[in-house]
Structure formats: C-alpha cells, structure tokens
Computed example of a mutant assay.
Amino acid sequence: MRPPRLTRLTLPRPWGSAALRTLGPGSVSSLLKVGLDVAYVLLWAILAILILAFVAAVFIPLDNLTVTVDDAAGGRELPLERAILLFAVGSFCAYFGAFALIVGRLRAIFRTLTQGDPFHPENISRLRQIGLILAVVTGGVWLWQIWAARLAPGAMEPQGVGELLTPIFSVLVVFVLAEVFREGARLRREAELTI
C-alpha cells in the first residue's frame, strides 16, 4: 500500500488569513518608506540647526571659555578655541549630512519596492552610493576619534582595528547587495527579452 501523496502543504499564518506582503502598495516596504520619510525630514532639520550653530560659532566671543575634560586621573580644563569648536560642529554637520544622504537613497530604493519593482536599475547605483558614503563616514569617525584622543589624552581612546570590523563588514554587505541587485536587474532584462 502506497502512502498518500502530499499535494499542498498549508501552514497556519500568524496574522490571520491575509498574507503579509513585502512589496507593493500597502506592504511592509511602504510602511518602512513612511518611517524613512520621517527620518529624512528630522535629519535635515537637525542638519539645519547644526549649520546655524556652525555659523553662530564663527561670531560668538570665546573669551575665557573652557572645556572640562574628564579622564582617569580627574578633570582638567582646556581653553575653548574657535578652530576646535568649528571643527567639532562641522564634524557633526558632515555626520548628519551623510546620513541624510543615505536615508535619501534608501527612500528612493523603498519607493521602487513600494511600486513592486525591486530590481530597478537605479537601485544598483543607489546602493553603491550608500556603501561609499558609509565608507567615508567610517573613515571620518575613525580619524575624528584619533584626533580627539590626541587633543584630550585619556578622555577618549581611539578606535582599534578590531572595532572597525563591524562598520567595514556593513560597507562590504552593501556593496554585495548592489551586485545582487545588478544581477537581478540583468535577469529581469533577459526575461523581458524572451517574452
């Protein structure tokens, strides 16, 4: 006697009878795009405030202002110099500006996902741009921490090579995803030509 054939496997869905869609209007990707839209506006608002602070730092008097730096031996006061203040505020401007650019590229990618077109050819360059911006931010933060550690010894330790593994891994993952999207776009073009 032969066992009965299993023709269709039906698993219970945790969210009821409706399937959770990941692409298209009303999907998870459209919900994430709304979150990215909010983050994009907030990042640009923060960046505008930082730019105003940068401009104000050029003109505010810094006579007799000091910064207290805490380290293991105790606190010490350093004079607040205009160049240090401008560099610090400018660094924050660059940091938030870079992430505003990343979120802008992600919004464009999620717009294509919401339209149901994940392998849009522009997504390849958007992912590469995100990877490049992440690489520049990672290098910039690393250099900034080295500079800050020299400015205030003991208060901040520079990142070691081991601490750079996660950001470098993230950058490499983004570049690999760009190649996956490139291959997906190529396969889609071939499929369109055969139909």
Rank of each mutant, 00 (worst) to 15 (best):
E81Y: 07
F169C: 12
Y95H: 14
P118R: 06
V171L: 04
L164D: 10
L80F: 00
I102Y: 02
Q129I: 10
L143N: 00
T138K: 01
A108F: 07
G90D: 05
G90I: 03
F169G: 13
E157L: 11
A148M: 11
R126S: 13
L165A: 08
L134R: 12
W144Y: 10
G116L: 04
L101P: 10
I168W: 13
T114E: 15
R82Y: 07
F92S: 14
P167L: 03
T114M: 05
G116Q: 07
L80C: 03
I130Y: 05
L80I: 01
V137W: 00
F110L: 12
L101R: 15
W142P: 03
L143G: 01
L80H: 01
A88Q: 08
G140F: 01
S170D: 14
I133R: 01
P167C: 04
V89A: 07
P121Q: 05
L164G: 12
A100K: 03
F110I: 02
F87I: 14
L80T: 01
F92C: 14
A88C: 08
I168C: 12
A178Y: 04
V180W: 15
R82A: 03
L177F: 14
G131S: 06
Q159G: 13
Q129W: 10
G162P: 01
A98E: 09
C93M: 08
V173E: 14
L164V: 08
L127A: 15
W142V: 03
E81C: 05
F119Q: 09
E122D: 13
V161Y: 12
V89K: 06
A152C: 05
G97P: 04
I109Q: 03
A149M: 00
C93W: 05
F87A: 15
